[in-house]
Amino acid sequence: MSHGRGTRELVVLGTAGQAPTRTRNHNGYLLRWDGASVLFDPGEGIQRQMLHAGISSPRIERICVTHRHNDHCLGVPGVLNRMAQDAPGRAVTLHGPADAARHLRDLAVVAQAHVAVTVDPVPTVDAFVPVADVAGSALTARALDHRVPAVGYRLGEPDGSSFSPGALAAAGIRGADVGRLQREGELHGVRLADVSTPRPGQVFAFVMDTRDCPAVAELVRDADLAVLECTYAHRDLRLAHDRGHLTARQAGLTAARAGVRTLVLTHFSQRYDAAELGEEARAAIAELGGRTSVHVASDLDVVPVPARARA
């Protein structure tokens, strides 16, 4: 059945591509999910961005890195030091592709922080692999196509159901009998399915540096909130492919075809106005008649995970 859910939102800490700009920090994205906090791809300067965003470092349980390029992980030492200052002895797990495991361990050593760090290598295979349980939702990953081994992440809540107050009243089920029906599945000839409606689980997806490939669509399939890099405009498609990145058009088309509800665009090359990339993605979605909404991310944005309507 449906249980009370806490805050589910994405805090954008940085949105620049390889090089930061005057208005865009290196990468960094914090997902708040029912009391759990997961930090994705913390680039340089993220410790300071966390202060601007009012993020409490002791709440971070795990750090998920997509690949070993430094603009996606050089902020790890600073975050660990901040955690050591705020909550000495606090444990944190670093997830990343197996190729990046040594690099992540070295970053933890450089930090010299009094934090219990576990590095958990993620296999880079063309299938979903389990990573962790996050507040009852399954965090998984699968390989992408970049210049070095890279993975994308998907967090999926189990499907559930919610009681219909009207159906309960019509069936004469009230008080303690509601809980009994939930536990037993049937009560006085009334089945659980007779007085409840399905509720699809919410899905969050996170895809950074990658060429366009089938794994991107699999990661963001039916996601309520999907973060996709769009380093280049489509007029620079060849450059995007050569450097292992998506264009804004590719991001928009993939999101529309995959049924993404809200697409967060980020990881912008400084050669573009990000608004242009947003319009390119929206135009691609419109071509397909898609309903995906597009959020062009700026540093310190807070983007809620849209609520799921009952099926």
Rank of each mutant, 00 (worst) to 15 (best):
A127E: 14
A19S: 07
D209R: 11
S162T: 13
G172K: 11
L263I: 07
R174Q: 12
D177Y: 04
L237H: 15
C230Q: 13
G136W: 13
H67M: 09
D133I: 03
I285R: 04
L288M: 04
E287C: 02
A101S: 14
G201A: 07
G189S: 09
A258H: 12
R310N: 10
P165I: 04
L277W: 00
L265E: 02
P121D: 03
Q250H: 12
R102M: 09
P214S: 11
D145N: 08
T23A: 15
D194P: 08
M208L: 09
S293T: 15
T247H: 12
V11K: 13
P97D: 03
L225K: 02
H241P: 06
Q182N: 10
T254L: 13
G75W: 02
R174P: 02
W33P: 08
L265V: 09
H295T: 12
S57Q: 07
Q85L: 01
L104Y: 03
A309F: 03
R62S: 15
R183A: 15
A309N: 05
V129M: 09
L300M: 05
N81Y: 03
G54R: 04
A113P: 11
A141F: 01
R48P: 00
L288W: 06
P88C: 02
C213K: 03
L239M: 01
T262K: 14
L246Q: 02
V264M: 03
A98E: 15
R291I: 03
A275W: 10
A309R: 14
I285N: 00
A169N: 06
T262F: 11
H95G: 04
T197H: 05
A311C: 11
A91F: 08
L144M: 13
V151H: 12
R180V: 15
A176P: 11
A205G: 05
V11G: 07
D212L: 10
G54A: 01
R180D: 15
P130R: 08
C230W: 05
R8F: 09
L239K: 12
V148Q: 03
A87E: 08
P158M: 05
G160M: 05
G28L: 07
A274K: 14
V148D: 10
E44W: 04
A135S: 15
G201I: 11
A167P: 02
Y29C: 00
S196Q: 10
E9G: 00
V195L: 11
G175T: 06
L300P: 00
L104P: 02
D126H: 10
G259H: 11
F204E: 01
R183W: 07
I173R: 11
R105D: 05
V115W: 12
V302K: 13
L225G: 06
V79M: 03
G17F: 10
D106C: 09
G54I: 00
G54F: 05
A36Q: 09
Q49N: 13
L192A: 06
R32M: 04
G35Y: 12
A274N: 03
L263N: 07
E276M: 05
V129C: 14
R243K: 05
L225T: 05
